[in-house]
Computed example of a mutant assay.
Amino acid sequence: MNLIIDQGNTVCKVAIATEEELVQCYTFPHLSLRDAGQILSAHPSLEAAIYSSVARVDKPLLGLLSERLPSVVMVDEHTAVPLEVEYDRKRLGSDRLAAVVGAYSLAPRERELLIVDSGTAITFERVTSSGTYLGGNISPGLYTRLKALNHFTSRLPLLSDLKDTSLGYGTTTQEALSRGALRGLIYEVDGYIRSLRSLHPEAVVYLTGGDAQMIQELLEEDVYVEPNLVLFGLNKILEYNK
């Protein structure tokens, strides 16, 4: 059994996995040593772990994992992955790489891929039908857009809870902000997908991240939603490095 740890910008996701699938998932604001110890004790069959962080590396946590498990992989620019990578690995977030590996592992062979991860930032990653990760783009996520409008203006309020998912025109400032940010993001995602499918009509698109389900319901283009794509990809990377 494998222990998968993904420390993101806002939460830490943890999974227990077999070679092929995730069997149990947890979410923490931050994975403390106590939390990690309890997970390790609750799953004595664990034999390996993989650790990914877009923030600072938690050295005490890595030390605990190394003490308790025979094999621990920390994802960095040297970690082997099952596809060719043209992006600069020194500057590539491990969560982005894991999402790419996860989608590549799930998708039918010889299909062009687009992976969209929507959270604090929204990322667009391209993988060719021959298994080459060409690179990707980074754009502000939905709530990052709303925070920027509040921060860089004098009177626009900060919207912390987006309950209005209409794409129409707002009749209040709150509606104008929420609908404007959301409509812009939806058009952006649909635009990327249409651009790819104009060249490769059979291209497969995977959508993940905290806003994935809401975005999928508003898109005109068809996509697959995989909420745990990064965790799944990390598990594939761990298996590849055994």
Rank of each mutant, 00 (worst) to 15 (best):
Ser94Cys: 15
Leu182Tyr: 07
Asp95Tyr: 04
Leu159Glu: 15
Gly131Thr: 08
Leu40Tyr: 10
Asn9Ile: 10
Val14Ile: 09
Arg155Pro: 00
Leu146Ile: 15
Asn235Ser: 11
Lys163Arg: 12
Tyr169Asp: 11
Gly63Asn: 13
Leu199Pro: 09
Leu65Gln: 02
Glu47Met: 00
Thr132Gln: 11
Ala49Cys: 06
Ile5Val: 12
Glu84Leu: 08
Gln213Thr: 00
Val11Tyr: 13
Val57Thr: 14
Leu40Phe: 02
Lys147Tyr: 06
Arg197Thr: 01
Leu159Asn: 11
Tyr26Ile: 15
Thr79Gln: 00
Val223Trp: 00
Ala15Arg: 10
Lys59Thr: 15
Ala148His: 02
Leu229Thr: 00
Pro60Phe: 04
Glu86Leu: 15
Tyr192Arg: 03
Phe124Gly: 10
Leu3Val: 01
Tyr169Asn: 14
Gly170Ser: 11
His200Pro: 04
Leu185His: 14
Ser160Arg: 14
Ala121Asp: 08
Val223Glu: 08
Leu149Thr: 13
Phe232Gln: 07
Glu20Gln: 11
Val85Asp: 04
Leu159Cys: 10
Pro70Ser: 06
Gly191Ser: 07
Thr79Asp: 03
Ser71Lys: 14
Leu158Cys: 02
Ser154Lys: 15
Leu185Ser: 13
Glu220Gly: 12
Thr10Phe: 11
Lys147Ser: 13
Val223Asp: 02
Ser53Pro: 01
Ala103Ser: 06
